[in-house]
Amino acid sequence: MTQPPANLSQLLQRLRDQTEGQDQVSIGDLLAAVGQRSFGPIVLVAGLIVVAPLIGDIPGVPTLLGLVVLLTLGQLLFRRETIWLPHKLTHRRVGRDKLMKGLDWMAKPARFVDRWSRPRLTWLVRGPGRYLMAIICMLVAAAMPAMEVVPFSANGGGLALMVFGMAMVARDGLLALLGMVLTGGTLWFVLAGLMGS
Rank of each mutant, 00 (worst) to 15 (best):
Q3L: 15
P4I: 09
P4T: 14
P5M: 08
A6C: 07
D17I: 07
T19V: 05
T19Q: 00
E20S: 14
G21K: 01
G21A: 00
D23K: 08
Q24T: 05
V25Q: 12
G28Y: 08
L30K: 02
R37W: 06
S38V: 01
S38C: 05
F39C: 10
G40T: 03
L44G: 03
V45E: 13
I49S: 10
I49K: 06
I49V: 14
L54E: 04
I55Y: 12
P59S: 11
G60D: 07
G60M: 00
G60C: 09
V61E: 14
P62L: 01
L64T: 08
L64P: 02
G66V: 01
L67T: 07
V68I: 05
L70R: 04
T72L: 00
L77G: 00
L77I: 09
R79P: 05
R80N: 09
R80I: 02
T82Q: 14
W84Q: 09
W84N: 08
P86D: 02
H87P: 05
T90D: 06
T90P: 09
H91Y: 04
R93E: 15
R96V: 06
K98S: 10
K98W: 13
K98C: 00
L99W: 11
W105S: 08
W105D: 11
F112D: 07
R115F: 06
R118E: 07
P119G: 06
L121Y: 02
W123D: 14
Y131A: 12
M133V: 15
A134L: 11
A134E: 12
I135Y: 10
C137Y: 09
C137N: 15
M138R: 04
V140Q: 09
A141F: 14
A141G: 12
A143N: 13
V149P: 10
V149E: 14
N155V: 13
G157R: 12
G157E: 13
A160E: 11
L161A: 05
L161D: 13
M162Q: 03
F164N: 05
F164M: 09
F164V: 05
M166N: 09
A167W: 08
M168V: 01
V169C: 03
V169D: 08
A170C: 02
D172K: 01
D172R: 01
L175D: 01
A176L: 01
L177R: 06
L178G: 00
G179K: 09
G185C: 14
T186G: 10
W188S: 13
L191S: 10
G193R: 07
G193Y: 02
G193Q: 11
L194W: 09
M195C: 05
M195I: 12
S197N: 10
